[in-house]
Amino acid sequence: MRRNHQPWAVKFILNALNHFYVERILRPQFDRLGKCPAMLKPRSIKLTGHQIYAGDYLHIISSAEQPVTLTCWRSKQHDGKIELGNYCLISPGVKIAAAEQISIGDNCMLAAEVSISDCDWHGLYNRVRPFRCSAPVTLENNVWIGLRAIIGKGVTIGENSVVGAGAVVTGNVPPNVVVAGNPATVVKHLSPGKRYLKRDYLFQQAGDDFWNKQQALEKAFNRSNRWWYWLKTWVAPGDND
C-alpha cells in the first residue's frame, strides 16, 4: 500500500492498546522509565535482565521484523546495567547488550540496526565463558549513531559527535566530530560554538502534550478514510492505493 487507508477509529483503538501495553506490561520491566514514552509496536520490544533505566520522552520504534532489544547480562563476574538519558530516539533493530555498563546521554539518536556492546562475550584464549573481556561504554549528550554502526567495548563517544553508517567504533571518539569507516576515524570536525537543535526542542513548547498533538495531526490525515474502502483495499487494492 502506498497510502494508509485505516480509519481513525481503528488507529485510535490500536493507540490505546499500545499505551496500555507500555504502561502495564513494558514499564514494569524497566527499573526506571521516565514520563511520556512513545513506543511503536511495543510488543516487539525485548527487555532482558535488571538495571535498565530510561529518562523522559523515550522514543522507541520497533517492529516484529526489526525488534529493539535491551539486554543486561548477570553472572558471578558480571552485573550489566543500561542507562538511557532524556529525549533519546531508538530506531528499529537496535541491539544494546551490557555485561558491565552502557550509559547513553540526553538527546542521543540511534539509527536502525545499531549494535552496542560492552563485552566481547568470549575471551581470546578462554572461549568457554566471558572473562575479563568487558569495559563500560559511554555515549555523551547529543550523540548520533548512524545506520548499522557497531560500538565496541570500552568506547566513549564525545558530546555532539556523529558516527557514520556502517562504522565500527573500537576506540574513543572526541566531542564535535564525525567518524566513519572500519575502524572508525575522524572525517570531519564540527564547530563547538555553533548552536545545536536537539531533540529536547520538540518538547520545549508542547511539553507533555507533544505526543497528543502528533496524534491529533494523524487524526486529521486519517479523517477522510472510510471503513468500506479500507476493507476493499485488503481484498482488491487499486492502482491508487
Rank of each mutant, 00 (worst) to 15 (best):
L84E: 02
L84V: 07
L84D: 01
G85S: 04
P92M: 11
V94F: 11
V94H: 09
V94E: 07
K95F: 15
I96V: 12
I96G: 00
E100C: 13
S103H: 15
G105L: 01
G105V: 01
D106S: 09
C108L: 01
M109E: 02
L110F: 05
A111K: 02
A111Q: 04
A112C: 11
E113M: 05
V114F: 00
S115G: 11
I116Q: 05
S117E: 10
C119S: 10
C119W: 03
W121K: 02
W121R: 06
W121F: 12
H122L: 07
L124C: 10
L124I: 14
R127W: 12
R127S: 12
R129H: 13
P130E: 05
P130F: 03
R132L: 11
R132W: 09
C133T: 08
C133A: 08
A135F: 01
A135I: 05
P136L: 06
V137P: 00
V137E: 00
V137Y: 00
V137C: 01
T138N: 11
N141C: 03
N141D: 13
N142G: 05
W144D: 02
G146E: 08
L147P: 04
R148G: 02
R148Q: 15
A149I: 09
A149C: 11
I151P: 01
I151L: 08
G152C: 12
G152Q: 13
K153D: 04
G154N: 03
V155K: 00
T156N: 08
G158Q: 10
E159C: 09
N160Q: 14
S161C: 10
V162H: 09
V162K: 15
A165K: 11
A167F: 03
V168H: 10
V168S: 10
V168C: 10
V168R: 09
V169A: 02
G171T: 15
P174Y: 12
